[in-house]
Amino acid sequence: MMRTATIGSLLALHVAVQASPNLPFVINTWGGPFTTATDAAYLSLRNSTASALDAVQVGCSTCEKNQCDGSVGFGGSPDENCETTLDAMIMDGTTMKSGSVAGLRRIKDAIAVARHVLEYTTHTLLAGDLATQFAVSNGFPLSNLTTAEQAKRCAAWREDNCQPNYRINVSPDPKSSCGPYIGIALNSSSPAYKRALTPDASQTSHDTISMITIHSSGTMAAGTSTNGATWKVPGRVGDGPITGSGSYVDGDVGGCGATGDGDIMMRFLPCYQAVENLRQGMSPKDAAEDVVKRILRKYPDGSYGIVVVDKHGQHGGAGSGWTFTYAFRGGSMNATEVVSVPPLTENRRGAKIVYIKLARAFAQQRRGEGER
């Protein structure tokens, strides 16, 4: 009896992690300051006629205004020129249409501009100064995205010879110089060329808010907002505004949000893959773990986080490189809850095998009791 109870407890824990608190439902990457966005999106669904798209915009906009963790909105993650640029994407789970902005300059309301791209154009992505021009033509005010704290931080970075940075195969040596840089001539047999193609996850990752909402009617939406990687090469765009990478949603199946080493993650379209995993019958947790493992096979040293939710609000996550957290609130919950997801390791995969064996043993034992 004791052994049966232990196995049953493991099964109950697994179900509890995946359970839905009912609709409406909001889930997003990260806890801590990001939970204000979860609450804002949830309350918009509970207390008004807001749609799933409205709730995503409210949530991501809240993070932009609050400068969540310094990685979303103005005043964070400057590039080599000490300028903050913003990336955002919003997607409707019914029509599958998305609107995005990348490298948006001098405009604070990135997710709102992305919503305008979705609703007032037949395009998906606008970038750089011309995205700013679009925003201004739609009534968004120009703003200085640099703060005094950011300017001080940037001065210190330059005094430290611009370390770290994202340059490789350039002259002067990017490990001891701020440039300007010139690319070194490469040939296919040179060590430098091989290094350029060799998987490299040595840079630190950055945080992003990626959010999925489910309206009480069952309609779904997703969105992402970020100010990108700190000290990035000017013009760099990461996974955030890329449909299927930073986030993705299909209201017939579910949605996904991603955070981490965006330059690596976007090579795998992780959120598109996660939703397709749901379509093939995987649980949200298994769908997320499968995606992270796909990336780890090629880039084992990076930091990645994936949160997945199905159309019923059942959810799960997976990460690598650090303890990933995500926040959710739904049904009649009085407060947002934060889930910590330990990084995937060989030991963790081994523990999962043990769990499966225990579950099978429990099922066999139950069948035996039924026969008696």
Rank of each mutant, 00 (worst) to 15 (best):
I7W: 11
L13N: 03
H14G: 00
L23C: 04
Y42Q: 09
Y42I: 02
L43T: 09
S44Y: 00
A50V: 03
A50K: 03
T62D: 01
E64P: 10
D69I: 00
T84W: 00
A88T: 15
T94C: 05
T95L: 07
S98G: 13
A102E: 08
R105K: 14
I107V: 15
I111V: 15
R115L: 13
L125R: 12
L126C: 09
A127N: 09
S137V: 06
N144P: 05
N144K: 13
L145K: 09
E149W: 01
A151R: 10
R158N: 07
P164Q: 02
N169M: 12
N169D: 10
S177D: 07
G179M: 07
P180Q: 13
Y181F: 15
G183W: 03
G183C: 04
L186C: 07
P199S: 10
H206A: 08
M211C: 09
H215G: 03
M220N: 13
T226M: 02
G228D: 07
T230R: 11
W231C: 01
P234D: 11
T243P: 12
G251M: 05
D252C: 05
V253H: 07
C256W: 02
M265A: 12
M266P: 06
E276T: 14
M282Q: 07
D286W: 01
A288K: 07
D290W: 09
D290R: 14
V292P: 04
R294Q: 14
G305D: 13
V309E: 03
K311Q: 09
F328V: 00
G331V: 00
M333G: 03
S340P: 04
P343I: 07
P343Q: 14
E346I: 15
Y355G: 10
F362I: 00
A363I: 08
